[in-house]
Amino acid sequence: MGYKLDLVLEEEKLEFIIHILRDAIFFDNDPPRTDEEKKERLEQTFVELKKFIPKIFSLAIGEDQFDSGSKVILDLLQYPKLNKQLSYVLLDIALLELFPELEERTAVNLQI
């Protein structure tokens, strides 16, 4: 998992993620998706999630358990308000990784 986190925190990918978050939060003017589009997107997301999780997990716990566990993870991420909060928390962590001096300043401000 640490390796995957390092991949996500690479500068180019982090910039891409920040732009996606900005667009989703401030520039979401897309027309609503149809039920068919939502279903296709959910299926594609499930396939990509299974690719993201290292194969060693599926070998260790079995393919059926791996599929059901991946489905549970995907279902947990289907709440827009929670996703927005999760995005803010992850952005905060990413910014602290890029600029550790922010954490030092925050700690100093809290002591005053």
Rank of each mutant, 00 (worst) to 15 (best):
A107G: 00
V89S: 09
L74A: 05
V89R: 01
T34R: 06
Q44P: 00
S58M: 14
I61E: 13
R33Q: 11
K39E: 15
V108H: 08
L82A: 10
R22S: 12
P80M: 05
S87F: 07
L95V: 09
A94Q: 03
E36S: 06
L21H: 07
P100V: 12
I112Y: 14
Y79V: 03
E36L: 15
I61G: 05
D35G: 01
L96T: 00
L7G: 15
Y3H: 05
A107I: 12
L74Y: 05
E43M: 12
L102K: 03
I53F: 07
D30S: 15
D23H: 12
L86Q: 07
S58Q: 14
V108G: 03
E36G: 04
L76N: 14
I73F: 13
E36C: 02
F27W: 06
K38I: 07
D30W: 11
N109F: 15
K71R: 08
K13A: 07
N83H: 10
P32Q: 07
L110F: 13
Y79I: 01
G62S: 09
D30G: 06
L14C: 05
P80D: 14
F57P: 03
Y3P: 03
R41Y: 11
R41I: 05
L74E: 04
L14Y: 06
E37S: 10
I56T: 02
T34S: 15
I25G: 00
L110N: 11
Q65D: 14
N83P: 09
I93S: 11
E101S: 12
N29T: 12
I17P: 01
A60R: 11
R41G: 03
